[in-house]
Amino acid sequence: MAVTVRIPTPLRTLTGGADEVPADGGTVAEVIENLEANHPGMKDRLCDDKGVRRFVNLYANDEDIRFLDNLETALKDGDTLSIVPAIAGGR
């Protein structure tokens, strides 16, 4: 499945500055593996040994994957996976 992944600014150093990248995979987990293959370091920024890091949210077409099937959430052609990390600044 060909999906589009939205990359937040803190992770664009891994994608050469791209704010969106294409990726392949039938599940969120497979897409993350594909991202890691094409943009090394990405998986570590998104996941730890327990799954998706606690301060990172992944949205499959604007739905939080924690309310779907988490890393096993199915994706289809044309879907969008958005990465939303905790961003601290503001002052």
Binding site: P8, T9, R54, F55, N57, A86, I87, A88, G89, G90
Partner: peptide, 29 residues
């Protein structure tokens, strides 16, 4: 929260989703 070119804004009201429903806990990183 904002940094560089992007950020988020969120409203939590009593009885509904809170910031910990969103980001869970303070990152160790």
């Amino acid at each position: 929260g904002a940094v560089r070119w992007a950020g988020w804004a969120f409203c939590a009201v009593p009885g509904a989703a809170c910031l910990r429903c969103l980001f869970e806990d303070i990152p160790s990183d």
